[in-house]
Structure formats: C-alpha cells, structure tokens
C-alpha cells in the first residue's frame, strides 16, 4: 500500500450552531486521485479549506507528509502551500492581472522569475491546457467559463505541485466541456505524478477521474472505496446519491 500523503483525524468545524464537520477521518495516499462526493452543504468545501489552512478547524488533526498543519506556524504553512495547487470553483482568477500574469503569479511573486521567462513558461502551460498563446494577453473577464477553468488549472499546475485540489471542477460547464476538463485533470495530475483531492457531485466526473471515492454526509465520511466498489455497494446512502433519487435515507434539508 502506498504512503499516506494527507491524513485527517477527528476533524471538527462548526459555524455558530451549525456543526459542519463532525469528526472526519480520511487518508489520501501518495499519487492517488481521491474524490469526495456529497450533497450541497455537506461540508466538502469546508473540508478542503481546512486542509489548505484557509479555515482553522475547531478540533482534530491534519497531517501532510507527516507534518501537523493545524495550528502550525505561518512559515511551515507557506512551505506547504508551495507544494499545493488549487483549482477554484469559479476560477478565482485575479481580474486586475492579465491571463498570463495569473498563470505565472507564483513565478513572478514568489520565485522572482524575470517577466520574459515567466511569460514563456505561462504560454507553455497554457498550451498544455489547450489554450492558444494569444489568450495570454487577454484579461480573465474576456474568457468563457470553460476557458477560465483552464486558466485556473494552468495556474494550479505551473509550479509542479505535489498535491492538487479541485473544487467542483466541472460545475457550471456543459457536458462536453466538463469531459474536456476531466481529461485535462487526469493528464496534468498523471504528468506531474501529483496526489489529487477533488470534491464534486458530478458522477460522470467521479467515474472518470477517481481512483478512490469517499462520501461525506452530515460532516462524516460514511463510506469509501474504489469506483467499482461504489457501483456494487449496498450502502443505501451511496446508492441514493449515485443514482440521484429523491427517495431514500438522505433527506434534503430545505
């Protein structure tokens, strides 16, 4: 069995009275693609933000490469951030910068690469995600949703991170564009040998990119296994979710 890259133990997080994470235990192994599924509002985004240190959990432990990051000092956290890349749901591109400056942000600001070199590198990565070089000088607001996702992906992978997070990578895209993005995710993750953690509720995406699947429900991981196991499982929660039934043990909170 492969080494554990991210290890989460007994993670709790509440917002006011709402307990969002209620004791999450989850391991992500080195080099695998783990997909966390779950309905809207089950705490998937909160989980990913806790791992990245964007939110501080109330209790519990998160270890990356064996190093505890909950309550870690900022220098360690910024070390760990330099090993991570993230594709945000809405792209989260900086609209004050051009496309290539977005992609090359880390090179320009952290590694102090000179602008010419950084731009060449950005254009190379943009081409990898299927964007023509003339896109590089546009502003993010001039791009379509699918193109913004691609730029976001390029920005996430340009530093060759060891861990990449995908926050609902296919949400809001048409099925064909979603499949294109799925292909790009697989390609770039395999190309870098990166460990990836994806959260989504798009089952087509899950089947395509997941090595392993974990289901989050009411702030806990209630099931995990491979895609094959997922299709065969008797777990009523998983069955209801993957078949998309309104009837079953999961009650939609309105």
């Amino acid at each position: 069995m492969a080494e554990v890259k991210i290890s989460i133990r007994n993670l709790y997080k509440a917002f006011g009275k709402k307990q969002v994470l209620n004791g999450v235990n989850l391991d992500v192994r080195t080099g695998e693609s783990l997909v966390v599924i779950g309905g809207s509002g089950t705490g998937k985004s909160v989980l990913i933000k806790c791992i990245q240190g964007l939110l501080t959990p109330d209790m519990g432990s998160i270890k990356i490469d064996g190093k505890e990051i909950v309550g870690a000092r900022e220098s360690l956290r910024s070390d760990i951030h330099s090993k991570m890349g993230m594709l945000f749901q809405g792209g989260a591109l900086f609209d004050s910068l051009s496309v290539w400056e977005n992609v090359a942000f880390s090179l320009l600001e952290n590694r102090k690469t000179n602008r010419e070199k950084a731009k060449t590198e950005a254009v190379r990565v943009l081409r990898q995600v299927g964007l023509a070089p003339d896109v590089a000088d546009l502003s993010p607001s001039e791009l379509s949703g699918g193109m913004q996702k691609r730029v976001g992906l390029a920005r996430a992978v340009i530093t060759r991170p060891e861990i990449i997070f995908f926050d609902e990578p296919t949400t809001g895209l048409d099925p064909i564009m979603a499949d294109v993005i799925n292909d790009l995710i697989i390609e770039s993750a395999k190309g870098l040998g990166a460990t990836t953690l994806t959260i989504t509720h798009d089952m087509a995406s899950v089947r395509k990119i997941a090595d392993r699947v974990a289901m989050l429900y009411k702030g806990k991981i209630i099931w995990q296994g491979t895609v094959k196991e997922m299709d065969k499982t008797d777990d009523p929660y998983v069955r209801q979710f993957i078949n998309g039934c309104s009837q079953g043990p999961i009650k939609v909170e309105i």
Binding site: K49, H81, F88, D95, N110
Partner: peptide, 25 residues
C-alpha cells in the same frame, strides 16, 4: 468594492494558496 469582490469570488483564498499573504499583497 475591489477587495470585497476578491473575497466573495475566492480570489483572496487563491492568493493564500499561491503562498502570498493577502495582508502584504
């Protein structure tokens, strides 16, 4: 308005994940 929009569109989170401190930047 600018920083608020950056906050709600997760651009500030993106800064952090790109190892850039939003307070400094």
């Amino acid at each position: 308005a600018e920083i608020g929009t950056m906050r709600v569109t997760e651009q500030i989170d993106a800064l952090v994940t790109l190892s850039t401190n939003p307070f400094k930047y």
